[in-house]
Nucleic acid binder design. Structure first.
Length: 358
DNA sequence: AAACTAGTCAACCGCTAGTCA
DNA sequence: GTGACTAGCGGTTGACTAGTT
């Protein structure tokens, strides 16, 4: 590999903060000639900067489509979700937030989100609860802070947990009822649509990791390179679904590291409520619920591993839009009819859902 | 008012991947 | 196949600012 000549090797080049005059020169040159040719650009534009510096200035600051100002809550949620999905792949995360640069997102993560997650008892790396026991004492002080809550707080948290649990269970049942009707028919392309993160799910890529099931032929493969190139060319038919899927279904990819290897420490949890984030805790509760009939546990679970199944249902609770879209999407897929009464307009009860599908 | 501290973020550095001759 | 080059990425640095002592 050939090293690029470093800027410092070229004498007389300026470093540090850009002046308005420099910005103006760069802007006017790029307006006239467009992007590219960064190496020769500085000389042509009359700038005493290296090309790399010019490109960065343009990419991170001068580009007209850059969104400025505070991150919205939606953007923040997206960042957390995408970080759970991609890890520190800031450019991949940035692709999910139009107008935001990877640098900006990286900074925002390090200065805001990371700290907040720690404060809430969530490991910003694994997105797992810090109370899971696998993390050591490096976050001890932060943990102490978190646990120093009033009894009222504890009660409120317990209530919230209970509500969350019920909501999760109900919505999970709902989703799986839906999925159970269609799950076995879902082929890879449909699954690909749901995931929406790029490209065919099963390929002959040399570094794929495959999740197989015993009851269907569905093979979920995660292409380690998908976020580098394929995602940009993949166009889901359903924008909402694809966006929601990216934000809510890390099940298919967060268990894999950037090289496509199974990542035992990764978790799906992408939401701010730490009680929601501990999906292992929820798995136990779910498994211990005798009121769940078999039908509730099939559906997506027929081709997802148990942990992925849990990840999926947990995520869906947090994004009813995803569930709505999924329902109508699956229904469209079933009938090839676009105009259907979506099941989500019905009550979220077994009776109503059964009536709907009967 | 001055000194100090912590937080923020633009810019830089070192590196890899891809392209082309 | 090799070298030169560009583009892009993620981690780090350091200047700046706001808050505190």
């Amino acid at each position: 590999m050939v090293r690029t000549p470093c800027c410092k090797a070229e004498l007389g080049l300026k470093k540090g903060a850009w002046t308005p005059e420099e910005d103006q020169k760069l802007l006017s040159y790029l307006n006239r000639h467009g992007e590219g040719g960064w190496r020769t650009l500085p000389e042509k534009a009359g700038l005493k900067r290296c090309g790399k510096s010019c490109r960065l200035r343009w990419a991170n600051y001068l580009r007209p489509d850059i969104k400025r100002g505070e991150f919205t809550e939606d953007e923040e949620r997206s960042i957390i979700s995408l970080h759970a999905l991609h890890g520190n792949k800031w450019s991949a995360i940035a692709r999910g937030l139009p107008g935001r640069t990877d640098n900006e997102i990286k900074n925002y993560w390090n200065t805001h989100i990371k700290k907040r997650l720690i404060k809430e008892g969530i490991d910003p790396v694994t997105h797992k609860s810090l109370n899971s026991g696998t993390e050591k004492s490096e976050n001890h002080l932060e943990k102490q802070k978190v646990t120093q809550t009033t009894s009222d707080d504890v009660l409120d948290n317990e209530k919230a947990k209970k509500n969350n649990k019920n909501l999760r269970l109900s919505s999970a049942r709902f989703l799986n009822r839906v999925a159970s009707r269609f799950g076995k028919r879902i082929n890879q392309s449909v699954l690909s649509e749901i995931i929406g993160s790029g490209g065919p799910l099963a390929t002959n890529h040399t570094t794929t990791t495959t999740t197989t099931t015993t009851t269907t032929t569905t093979s979920v493969s995660v292409d380690s390179e998908q976020d580098k190139s394929a995602s940009s060319s993949f166009t889901p038919t359903s924008n909402l679904l694809s966006q929601a899927a990216v934000a809510t279904t890390p099940a298919f990819s967060s268990n894999f590291d950037v090289d496509g290897n199974v990542n035992p420490t990764s978790s799906s949890s992408t939401f701010s409520d730490s009680s929601v984030n501990n999906h292992l805790m929820y798995c136990d509760n779910f498994a211990g619920n005798n009121n769940i009939d078999d039908e509730d546990t099939i559906g997506f679970s027929t081709f997802l591993k148990d942990e992925d199944f849990m990840i999926l249902e947990e995520s869906c609770v947090e994004n009813t839009a995803f569930m709505k879209e999924l329902t109508s999407f699956l229904h469209e897929d079933e009938n090839d009819v676009v105009e259907v009464t979506p099941v989500y307009e019905r009550q979220d009860t077994f009776a109503e859902i059964d009536k709907y599908f009967s």
